[in-house]
């Protein structure tokens, strides 16, 4: 479903991502974990075709993330880490715009936008300019944008980052619902508890290099950790600074 082979990205002298090979199965929710600056957002941007790989390839549903960019975006939804919106468009207008970009006609775009705004719980705020939105509302609007075309695959970059506890809980519940609906989800996050609860497998990356991938139990076994070792302890162990 999602597959990277030797995916590498270099920014000048800095190697941001080093030969990442990873596969996410259909219907799977995979957590993508790593410290700040480890290459998570770079990977996600490569998957969305926003960056061109220096080497290697990335494919989603068999589509090359760079060469088949347009076709890919019809079947993938994307939630960026910092979802900036047009400040002087309302949430509803942005949703209508995105629906239009996905080829929906005027009436259909309006209907989808209304439904997405309602699903996202924007309420009256859907008519307000997005400049007035809190971060939580911006994230919910951006998630509604990612879902407006009913994609098979979702790529979520730090979906709970910056949200208050209630907002984070609501976002987690929404992701759980989406996962239960059979969507394939790749989600980067710092919230390890949420990752353990939501994701079947996790991939841990450090300094651009994939350190480990598997279910939490598999990782515990691989790193000879006790069965009650938390994912947080495991994560800290795997990403401990030192030679990769």
């Amino acid at each position: 479903m999602i597959e990277t082979v030797g995916l590498t990205k270099r920014f000048g002298d800095k190697l941001a991502l080093d030969r990442l090979s990873l596969a996410v199965e259909p219907g799977e929710v995979m957590g993508f974990l790593g410290p700040n600056g480890s290459g998570k957002t770079t990977t996600i941007r490569l998957l969305m075709g926003l960056l061109r790989p220096t080497a290697g390839s990335a494919r989603i549903l068999g589509l090359d993330c760079h060469a088949d960019g347009l076709a890919l975006k019809r079947v993938v939804g994307y939630l960026p880490d910092e979802p900036f919106l047009y400040p002087y468009l309302s949430g509803r207008e942005v949703l209508e715009l995105v629906a239009g970009l996905h080829g929906m006609t005027g009436a259909e775009a309006k209907r989808r936008a209304e439904r997405a705004a309602a699903d996202a719980g924007l309420g009256e705020a859907a008519s307000a300019y997005t400049v007035t939105y809190s971060l939580g509302m911006k994230k919910r609007t951006a998630l509604a944008m990612a879902l407006i075309h009913d994609p098979q695959v979702l790529i979520l970059d730090e979906p709970t980052n910056g949200l208050d506890p209630r907002g984070a809980r609501e976002m987690r519940d929404t992701i759980a619902r989406l996962a239960a609906g059979g969507r394939t989800i790749l989600m980067s996050t710092h919230l390890l508890e949420a990752a353990e609860r939501l994701c079947r497998r996790v991939a841990i990356i450090r300094a651009g290099v994939l350190q480990a991938v598997g279910t939490p139990d598999e990782l515990r076994a691989r790193f000879a950790a006790a069965p009650d070792t938390s994912l947080e302890d495991l994560f800290l162990h795997v990403t401990e600074p030192g030679p990769s």
Binding site: M48, L50, Y78, F84, L85, V94, L101
Partner: peptide, 9 residues
């Protein structure tokens, strides 16, 4: 906000 257009098909 360009990501909105860039992520659209």
């Amino acid at each position: 906000a360009f990501w909105i257009l860039r992520a659209a098909p």
